[in-house]
Each structure stands twice: as structure tokens, then as C-alpha cells.
Write a protein that binds this DNA or RNA. Structure first.
Lengths: 331, 331
DNA sequence: CTGTTAGCGCCTTCAA
DNA sequence: TTGAAGGCGCTAACAG
């Protein structure tokens, strides 16, 4: 067989009209003679027919797809979210298409435009906004015109924009973590605060320091990555951390980088200095010492996003829960 | 603005014909009066026009999409591959749509049919086949009729099927690892061999044991996951590993599970027993002790898959390189 | 170089 | 219930 079988082909093979074939294959309310139906199904099977979803999308004016935009799919944070989005989408018979922004606002805007071209039913944006609101304006406009044309937009963890959103509890979790650590006896804090212009990073850092009895000894900014965590920790070390007994990294990936830096410099963790992160990515429990962190159910967040879009919209919070592990023993 | 602007709208707004609008917006070889062109562009901009890719796909008879099928996107192995596929696709102006099989052959087949419906230009299947060939037949048929209709199929790491493939060096790497370990003085080996019916797992295990001077002391099967690695290691411990001085897990995720089990049982690594894995996922270097493994550049493999599809096809090997770390010191 | 006009594959009124 | 026919948004000959 060469070339894809078309609906017309199966209709002819089954000896029925196009309409009947369409109705028995993809139609909504079935009202087609059972015998015809069987003939069509058989013909389709025999010809290896698969409906051309593009054509369906054009004809119906809407496609069965969910478009997902993430910063970096290799980052466990986003791959967990993606897993949730994909699972929930598939359950609803929706396909997901996906693109990665590499944390570039400009690129993000382009990709949103591109994805809009697919006329997806839902557009999910995961990843935090920038605090300076750079590029917010055109993005908002783009998203608004998308919703105006019947699409659903769901934001994961970026509360600055006015769309349905799955909020991740950054402030509550960070504050609770700070409280727990103080409770454990820690007194001198340093913070690997991540990008100064990323809302999520800033929220976590601010809530954490806000819940401390005294201001942190040091705050270092850097990218949201493992390597930046490593570099930031080195910087902290070089600055001297005599009065520091705990380093809080605003995400686990950075915390793991920090652990590596401490190890490489021969500084005992948690003996000399304790470390805590945020997110509870799966490797958090596998590093040594196991990392104290704040658990966020990212996969649920992803699933919630599509549920929100397909449901009544609004905002939903996914909780954050402090998970104390070996990296922060009682002091 | 309500509803999506259509090409017809912008043509009218610009005072030109549909064809001219099409040509200046999406046309290939541009041969349109610059003034008209500007007018069209302005109108498009003003109306917030985005080409309906579905309509384009229907009209052109081909879509600009790459469909990617992975076993589990939350698994770092697959998310690295996905990152490569996405990056390379975007560089070529292709969108990627993605689905996850959850390692279920039946589901995989369904998803392939579903994805075919999108008439993608390329279909990338990542993830190993089953040794029993279960479900190979219908899958092959499906893939063949896809290629027959002009699509490109690329398999990543599953050499049993006759399509273009990005082969991952499982045997060479495993053999080299075995040799290195023997060289380091290890003599008693146990293998966490993963699923008995997964080609990749089997290849690695077989090549590893084949390169050993004597058969391994023990071989345990289980899923390809962290938890299965943990469970398998416990089983090994319970069987008694007096003569074992090294455990090889056929992938890093399992190896990390094994490390956790050893830690929980208070067994010193690498003092009492050494551990090695495969893949060199990014956390391999962050666990303690850092994991000896075999590096496979998964992201390159993903990128190579789309290059292959867009190029001349064939088979490409991505190399494997032994990476010795602290988990396997000289004995 | 521009506009007209068939389609692309499918869905969906509208009569029959 | 079935079939014929128009239309979805866009592209690609085809004439002008």
C-alpha cells in the first residue's frame, strides 16, 4: 500500500457514502445502520486507515491537542510536570505537542505564536515568569487573543498573569521549611537564591528569609541549574561561611550542585554545614546525605493543569510539604 | 478580537489576493512585490494572524511535525533523548508531538496509530523492544505502511526492527566496563539485569558477563526502575554476597536504587562492595560515592534521530564510554 | 508578479 | 438513516 488511505477510499471500499463512513468512524452520535458500520470498520481496518487529524481539525475548527511549553525538558522539574500533562491529556484522548523555551522570554513568545498555529484546545505554560515582567505585555496579548478564539490557557506556577493557573506553593513551603530548620536549631543561614529575576526563585527566597528570626548571612544569585548551584556554593565558601550553618538552595537541582561543591572542597555535610532544597525531585533522596527539601507534587500539577482547562478553570494550589532528611539533622 | 484571524482576513485587510497573502506570509520562493509584502505583514501583525498549521498540513499534504514516542518522560534517560529530539526538530522548524507508552507494547501500537493520524514527517520511537518480540508484527506493519506513505521512522536503541536507527552501543560499552573493572581488581560480580525481556537490558547484561573471566555470582532481574534496583539489591543481600565485590546494574537508575539499598542496610560502598551503572545520567556524579558508569550521549542520540530522518537515513551509532568514578576504586 | 480557481481530507447541514 | 454538497483555511497550479 502506498500513500495513506483516505476516508474516501474506505467509503468506496465499503460501498457507502463519505458521510456514512465519517459517521461510523469518527462521528459523535451514532445513528448508522449496524451493517454499514461493520463494513466501514472492516474496510478501514483492511486499508490501514487512520483519520487525518489535521483535516479533522480544519473541518471541525478545533483540534484535540494540548500544547505544552516548558523551560527545559531535561530538568526533572519540568519532566515531572510534562509527565502529568501527558498522562492527563491521554486520558482525555488529547495529544500533546511540546516545545522548550530555554528560559528565553523572546523565544517563549515565538513558540506561543507557533503553538497557537496548531489551534490547540489547551495551552499550558510551565515555568516561572520574570520579575521584571520583561516580555509580559506581548505574551499576555498573545494569550488573550488565544483565549478569545476559544482556547484555554493554563499557567503553572506563574501567578502574575491573569489566566487559569496551577499555583505552586512557594511561599508557604519556604516559610514552613525555614521554621522547621530554626526549630532544628539552625541559626546562620545562607541562600542560593537562583535567578534574581525569576518569580518562583524570588518568592521562595523571600518567604524563606522572611520566616527567619534574623536576616540571612549571605544571599547569592545564579541560574536555576545544578552548575549554578555548584558555582554559587563555591562563591559562598570563598566568601567565608564562619557563621553559616545551613545553606538553602531555592531548588533541589541547585542544592545538589551545592552538595557537590561542598564535597569537592572537603567540607562536611551536614556536620559542618547543612543543606536544604525545594521541589523534592526524585534524586533528592538519593544523594548523600539525603536532601531535606519541600515536596511539590509536580506530576499532579501537570495533570491539574489539563483538568483545569477542561473543567471550569480558575486557580488551584498544589501543596508543599516539608520533608526533613539527613542533610539537616537536629543541631 | 474574537475568533482567529484567517488568511483571507489579512488578504482583505491588505487589499490583496489570498494567493499574495499566502506567498508573502508562508510562501517558499518569495517573488512578491515588496510593498504588497509589507502591507500583508502589517495586516497580519495587526490582526494577530497565525497560520493554521492544520490547514497548511492538509493543503500541503505534509505536516511539519516530528512525533516522538517514549516509555516514560519522567525517566532521565528518555527526557534526555526528548531534549535532543526537540532541540534538533526546532532547529529544522519542526514541531514535536509526544506520547508515552509506559512500556506497554499494546499501548505503544495504539499510540503509533494515533500519531500516524497526525501525518508527521518523522516518527521517532525511543525505548527498547522486548526480546520475545511480542507485538513486533503489528507494529512493524504499522510502521511500514507509515514509511510507505512517505513518512520517516527512526528507532532509537532497538535494532531488531528494520528501520533507520540510532543504535546505542550497549554491548561494546558493557564489555569495556567489565574489562575496566577486572582491570581494577574486581573478581566477584553480581548483575542487576533489569527486565529479562528487554533487549537493551539483556544486551548489556550479556555483554558484561561475556567479558568477565568467570560467570557472575548472581543475576537478578527486575524492572528498569530505581525501586526495582533497590529491591533487586535487597534480594542480592539476602542471598548473601560473600564472594561478590561488585554489582553492575544495567542502568544508572537501578544502580542508584542499589546504592540506596546498600546504604539502608549499612553496607559500605565502595569499601565492602562496589557499584557500577550504565547511561551516565546527570545524577550519576551526584550520588555518593559518585557512580562509575558508561556514558551514552542521549541528547545527541535524540538529535541524531531527527538528523537521520531528514537526511539519508541508515544507522548511526552513538558511542559509549566508560566513566570510572569513586564507586569502583582500585581494589 | 498577481489573482483565480481547484483541490487537500474531512465534517456537517440539508434534502431525500 | 443515507447521500449530496458546501465549507473549513490554506496551497499550488494555472492563466493573466
Amino acid at each position: 500500500m502506498t500513500g495513506n488511505a483516505t476516508l474516501y477510499d474506505v467509503a468506496r471500499a465499503a460501498g457507502v457514502s463519505l458521510a456514512t463512513a465519517s459517521r461510523s468512524l469518527n462521528g459523535s452520535t451514532r445513528k448508522v445502520n449496524e451493517e454499514y458500520r461493520q463494513r466501514v470498520l472492516a474496510a478501514a481496518e483492511q486499508l490501514g486507515y487512520t483519520a487525518n487529524v489535521s483535516a479533522q481539525a480544519v473541518a471541525r475548527g478545533t483540534s484535540a491537542t494540548v500544547a505544552l511549553l516548558v523551560s527545559d525538558i531535561a530538568d526533572p522539574y519540568f519532566s515531572a510536570i510534562a509527565a502529568g500533562v501527558i498522562r492527563a491529556s491521554e486520558e482525555q484522548g488529547l495529544n500533546v505537542t511540546m516545545a522548550v523555551t530555554e528560559r528565553d522570554a523572546q523565544r517563549e513568545l515565538e513558540l506561543v505564536r507557533l503553538l497557537r498555529g496548531q489551534r490547540p484546545r489547551v495551552l499550558v505554560l510551565a515555568g516561572s515568569r520574570f520579575t521584571d515582567g520583561a516580555g509580559d505585555e506581548p505574551l499576555s496579548a498573545e494569550l488573550e487573543s488565544f483565549t478569545a478564539s476559544g482556547g484555554h490557557v493554563v499557567l503553572i506556577s506563574r501567578h502574575r498573569l491573569a489566566f487559569d493557573t496551577v499555583a505552586i506553593d512557594n511561599t508557604g513551603g519556604a516559610a514552613a521549611l525555614a521554621a522547621s530548620l530554626v526549630d532544628l536549631g539552625y541559626r546562620g543561614f545562607a541562600v542560593l537564591a537562583g535567578p534574581a529575576n525569576l518569580v518562583t526563585a524570588q518568592d521562595r527566597a523571600a518567604a524563606f528569609t522572611g520566616a527567619l528570626p534574623a536576616p540571612p548571612v549571605a544571599v547569592v544569585h545564579g541560574a536555576f541549574s545544578r552548575d549554578a548551584g555548584y558555582a554559587g556554593m563555591l562563591e559562598l565558601i570563598d566568601r567565608g561561611l564562619d557563621t553559616v550553618d545551613l545553606v538553602f538552595a531555592v531548588n533541589d537541582v541547585m542544592a545538589i550542585g551545592a552538595l557537590a561543591a561542598l564535597r569537592d572542597r572537603g567540607i562536611d555535610v551536614p556536620g559542618r554545614i547543612a543543606v536544604a532544597g525545594y521541589d523534592d525531585i526524585s534524586t533528592a533522596r538519593d544523594v548523600t546525605p539525603a536532601l531535606t527539601t519541600v515536596r511539590v507534587d509536580l506530576e499532579s500539577a501537570g495533570a491539574a493543569a489539563v483538568a483545569l482547562a477542561l473543567g471550569d478553570g480558575g486557580t488551584v494550589q498544589v501543596g508543599a510539604e516539608v520533608v526533613l532528611r539527613a542533610s539537616t539533622p537536629r543541631r
